[in-house]
Computed example of a mutant assay.
Amino acid sequence: MSSTSPFDVAAYVRAPLGPMRETLQGVGAALPADLADALRYVQRRAQGTGSWLSHVLVTATHKDARITAFLSTWAYEAHWFGDALTAIAGAGPVPAIRRGVAARIRTRFGPLREAVVANLHGRALTGVQMTERLVDGWIVDAMLERAQQLAPGAVAADLARIREGIARQAQFFAESATDALTHSRAARVLARRRLAMRTWPIGADHEPAAATASALQALFGADRSWAAAVDRRIDALPGLAGLQLVRRTVRKPGRRPLRITFRGTGRPRSSAPLHVGKDVAR
């Protein structure tokens, strides 16, 4: 997963991809309504990074200058990717979701909870966060790849540029996630647990489940081969084989998973419980 030389964060920060509207070719092109809605769905995922960052930056991750520098630029790029998608797809209604008391509590106290989790797990949590974003990037890129295939030529060219930016970001996440998962058993166990409990793509739990289902249906219909392909990439990450995150998402799009017990993490069932505490191994 990682390249032979470390990702050059300094070069990335110096040359981010910013506003794209003036150079887009497909603005005004006629798009099927369901494809435009799917692109707006991806746009909301791209511009909804603030909630995730508010959880990340209360953990030990914010003490890592290299990761923090990358994430600042990554969030900047994600905003402008979303802005480009808005220009291509046009503005549309934002689905409203009636959030129950439990969901509102999770939103309000999420950063506080994450700070407590971070205190328990230490640097292992940073590896999990990088893995989350790597997987999310793979899912979003698969959606944009299919949209590119369905869109008119000018729009397809614009989507290709956005995908190039996402691919560059994925290089950093892949390097960071693979390193953490390779060297930390705690990160591997924690990643299995937390990734399996997420709603994918990241931020889907802030919308009605029907919005995720509609976007996936518009792009992929009954084809699930794309989900299997992304799951194979996840399987190749150290310690994460067999999660089937994306196939589960396709079966129940937008729905929060039930809590389940995992096996196959490398610990015999009869052994003593694994202590997943602060992890300083790299």
Results as ranks from 00 to 15, higher is better:
246 V>I: 15
88 I>Q: 03
93 P>M: 13
213 A>G: 04
232 R>E: 15
47 Q>H: 06
105 I>A: 15
179 D>M: 05
66 R>I: 11
182 T>S: 14
198 R>K: 10
253 P>T: 05
246 V>H: 00
31 L>H: 01
266 G>T: 10
93 P>S: 15
23 T>L: 13
195 L>W: 01
99 R>V: 15
5 S>C: 05
158 D>N: 08
85 L>A: 07
14 R>S: 12
231 D>R: 00
228 A>H: 03
238 P>N: 06
210 A>V: 07
150 L>Y: 02
46 A>V: 04
205 D>S: 14
268 P>E: 09
74 W>I: 04
184 S>D: 06
78 A>T: 08
9 V>M: 11
234 I>P: 01
186 A>R: 09
38 A>M: 05
220 F>D: 02
130 M>I: 06
95 P>R: 12
67 I>M: 07
188 R>F: 03
132 E>Q: 14
122 G>T: 11
107 T>P: 01
154 A>Q: 13
142 A>F: 02
101 V>E: 05
37 D>T: 06
224 R>M: 02
131 T>V: 09
7 F>H: 11
233 R>K: 13
5 S>I: 12
161 R>Q: 13
247 R>C: 11
82 G>E: 05
23 T>K: 12
220 F>V: 03
179 D>S: 11
92 G>Q: 11
75 A>C: 09
40 R>H: 10
120 L>G: 09
87 A>H: 12
225 S>Y: 00
25 Q>K: 14
19 P>L: 12
231 D>M: 04
19 P>M: 09
21 R>P: 00
112 L>I: 15
136 D>Y: 01
141 D>G: 07
256 R>D: 07
48 G>Y: 13
81 F>H: 13
278 K>M: 11
253 P>M: 02
235 D>V: 10
78 A>D: 13
114 E>Y: 05
117 V>W: 07
103 A>P: 03
35 L>E: 06
200 W>V: 06
144 L>M: 10
153 G>P: 03
95 P>L: 11
222 A>D: 15
130 M>H: 10
46 A>Q: 15
187 A>I: 09
91 A>G: 15
112 L>G: 06
157 A>E: 08
251 R>Y: 00
41 Y>V: 09
4 T>V: 14
275 H>A: 15
36 A>R: 01
247 R>F: 00
